[in-house]
Amino acid sequence: VTLFVALYDYEAITEDDLSFHKGEKFQILNSSEGDWWEARSLTTGETGYIPSNYVAPVD
Rank of each mutant, 00 (worst) to 15 (best):
N53W: 14
A56L: 08
F20N: 00
S19N: 06
T44A: 03
P57E: 08
Y54E: 01
L29K: 05
Y10W: 11
L42W: 07
D16F: 15
H21G: 07
D59C: 12
K22H: 06
S19K: 04
K22I: 09
Y49F: 11
V1H: 13
P51N: 09
L7A: 03
Y54T: 04
D9G: 05
D17N: 14
D16V: 14
L3W: 10
L3C: 08
A6S: 05
D17E: 15
G45S: 05
D59I: 12
D59F: 14
L29P: 04
P51W: 08
S19I: 02
P51V: 02
E15H: 11
K25I: 15
G34V: 14
T44Q: 03
L29Y: 06
W37T: 03
N53V: 10
A12D: 02
S52P: 07
T44L: 02
T47A: 07
K22T: 08
E38F: 15
F26N: 00
T47N: 05
E15G: 13
D35F: 14
A6Q: 00
D9P: 06
E24P: 00
E11L: 11
E15W: 08
Y10L: 04
Y8T: 06
F4H: 06
W36C: 07
G45F: 08
G34H: 13
Y10H: 06
V58S: 07
I28E: 00
S19M: 03
T44I: 02
E15A: 14
L42E: 07
F26C: 01
L3E: 08
T14A: 13
Y8A: 09
D35P: 11
Y10R: 05
P57N: 05
L7R: 04
G48D: 00
S32H: 11
G45D: 06
Y49Q: 08
A12F: 02
G45K: 05
I28Q: 01
G45L: 07
H21C: 12
A39I: 03
F20M: 09
Y49D: 02
D16P: 06
V5G: 03
L29W: 06
V55Q: 01
K25T: 11
R40P: 00
V1Y: 14
I50H: 00
R40I: 11
S32T: 11
H21V: 13
Y10A: 02
L7W: 03
I13T: 14
E15P: 13
V58Q: 07
G23W: 05
E38L: 15
T14C: 15
V5P: 00
V55E: 00
G34P: 15
A12Y: 02
I13W: 08
T2S: 10
N30V: 07
R40F: 09
L18H: 02
P57V: 08
E11V: 14
N30R: 08
L7V: 07
W37C: 04
D9R: 04
P57T: 06
H21Q: 12
E38H: 15
L42K: 04
N30G: 09
I28R: 04
V5L: 06
S52C: 09
G34Q: 13
F4K: 02
T44G: 03
E46A: 14
D17L: 13
E33C: 13
Y10F: 11
G34E: 12
Y8Q: 08
D59S: 13
D17P: 02
N53Q: 11
K22Y: 05
P51R: 09
T47F: 07
I28C: 04
D17K: 15
K25L: 15
A56V: 14
V5Y: 13
V55S: 01
P57R: 09
F26Q: 00
G23I: 01
S52W: 09
N30H: 08
A6M: 01
I13N: 10
E38G: 05
G23T: 02
E11K: 11
V5I: 13
E38Q: 14
L3Q: 07
T14G: 15
G45P: 01
P57C: 06
K25G: 04
F26I: 04
R40Y: 11
D17S: 15
P51F: 07
E46W: 09
V5W: 07
A56K: 10
T2F: 09
G23F: 05
F4D: 00
V58I: 13
R40V: 10
A39Q: 00
D59Y: 13
S52V: 09
P57G: 05
Y54N: 03
S19L: 02
E11T: 14
H21N: 11
S31K: 12
V58R: 04
V55P: 00
P57K: 08
Y54D: 01
A6I: 01
G34R: 12
T2A: 11
R40A: 05
K22S: 07
L3F: 10
F4P: 00
L29E: 05
L18E: 00
T2P: 12
S52I: 06
E33F: 13
V55K: 01
I13R: 14
L18C: 02
E46Y: 10
F20A: 02
I50P: 00
K25R: 13
G45E: 05
G34T: 13
W36F: 10
K25D: 02
W36P: 06
G45I: 02
L18M: 13
F20P: 00
V1E: 14
W36Q: 07
G23N: 05
S32E: 11
T2W: 11
D17C: 14
E24K: 01
K22A: 11
W37F: 07
T44E: 01
N30I: 06
V5Q: 07
L42I: 09
L18I: 11
I50T: 01
Y8I: 06
K25E: 08
L7Q: 04
S31T: 13
I28S: 01
F26Y: 01
H21D: 06
G45R: 05
A56P: 01
Y8D: 07
T43C: 11
A6P: 00
V1L: 13
I28Y: 03
N53P: 06
V1W: 13
L3N: 05
A39L: 01
I13V: 14
S31M: 15
H21T: 13
F20H: 01
N30A: 08
D35Y: 15
S52Y: 08
A6H: 00
S31I: 12
E46I: 10
Y54K: 07
W37R: 02
Y54C: 07
D59W: 13
S41H: 07
S52K: 14
R40T: 12
S41T: 04
F26L: 08
G34Y: 10
F4N: 01
E24Y: 06
L42C: 10
G45C: 09
